[in-house]
Design a binder for these strands. Sequence first.
DNA 1: ATTTGATTTTAAGTGAATCTTAAGAATCTA
DNA 2: TAGATTCTTAAGATTCACTTAAAATCAAAT
Lengths: 222, 222
Amino acid sequence: MRILLVEDEQGIAAFLKQGLEEESFAVDVADEGKKGLQLALSGEYDLLLLDWMLPGLSGIEICRQFRKNFQDIPIIFLTAKDTLDETVFGLQSGANDYIKKPFHFEELLERVKVQLRPKSGEHSIFVLGDITLNTETHQVQKGTREVSLTQKEFALLEYLIRNKGKVCRRTRIIESVWDIHFDYNTGVIDVYINALRKKLMLTNEENYIQTIRGVGYIAKEL
Amino acid sequence: MRILLVEDEQGIAAFLKQGLEEESFAVDVADEGKKGLQLALSGEYDLLLLDWMLPGLSGIEICRQFRKNFQDIPIIFLTAKDTLDETVFGLQSGANDYIKKPFHFEELLERVKVQLRPKSGEHSIFVLGDITLNTETHQVQKGTREVSLTQKEFALLEYLIRNKGKVCRRTRIIESVWDIHFDYNTGVIDVYINALRKKLMLTNEENYIQTIRGVGYIAKEL
DNA sequence: ATTTGATTTTAAGTGAATCTTAAGAATCTA
DNA sequence: TAGATTCTTAAGATTCACTTAAAATCAAAT
């Protein structure tokens, strides 16, 4: 799930970005209104987090313009304002929810998940054969054995399992897991696939992660 | 309240399902171990009733695997076995109660209700290996030795133990223990983890508090 | 109000784990 | 079989956690 965060305060932006990424969202940050709108309109995001007060365009203005083209993408406002008027105004302009600063990250996360729920039915536990991956606790098990994965290994496995049964192209993988958007000619993926297969002890009879030559990989049950 | 019943004997399953539904529980039945675990992991249940002997996975195996992801959901075993050994084994693997077949439905119902009773007066003593932490008296012991902790040290240890077995992310820790919601890039956690390990004299063989690089820490028994 | 001692936080150097790159070996496809 | 793609390994770069010490903050007592 891709989230666009438009927020000018460095600290808040960094904090939210990290927190959300730990929850395995892909987060891009714009620190200024105009750029925010531009990115938003690229259509690559599943959810928008907009600060209310922004240099350039205000959050509300972004919201209104964005809604002209995208009706279904949820928008959540981060706002220091709490007067009814303003809030109503915000919701009228097409936002789905708002949250007052200062807020607990938990609370934001909760609302983000609520907004995304209908689409993804988000469960924090994913299963692939006898492999379970828990995004909540960041733990992976193969059968009864606990497998310890590094961050990148975990992120890659999560991506594959989330797309279980679908072919995952290398370009997509590198975009989602590594956040690299150009320059795909790197061998990282291979290295990490290798690491995963090793740690999960996948054999030829139990090749939950198969390679599709020239395209990418696919995770599937046997 | 949703209950998952994993029981292979048709008759018993139907009997219990009906009885519990009359008490207005929502009951799902799995007649086989593997399916049982799968359903359990969906996270939709408030209580698990597990038969001891099952085709596929044994009840105990389900219990153990389930516990890795869900610490707070009560589990009751239905068992024909009554030797002390086996029962102890069951409770050790994470069950909250067990009931010997044959049993009166009333009795089962009673125990179910006990387990679901709103957690009143929160347990004040938490245990991690040979470490005990008493929120009532604010005391901590390692084995027989009393360990004196400062407020923050205590708060951190309490947080970790309350979430025993789960990975605690740094952002969560800093939110819950320090109440810091932005600007998390501080080294405090490291310093305090260090202090705890020192005061508790945790060695490499006895590392109740393990670090998950890039993510956070986990408190767990060995 | 000032001092003192304890606690909490910041900061910085060090070391270890992880990430990335690169290159040769193995495998697949045309 | 040749060329391309993927696998595997190892080494260099980088990031992150550990540790220590010192600064800042807080609380109690004079």
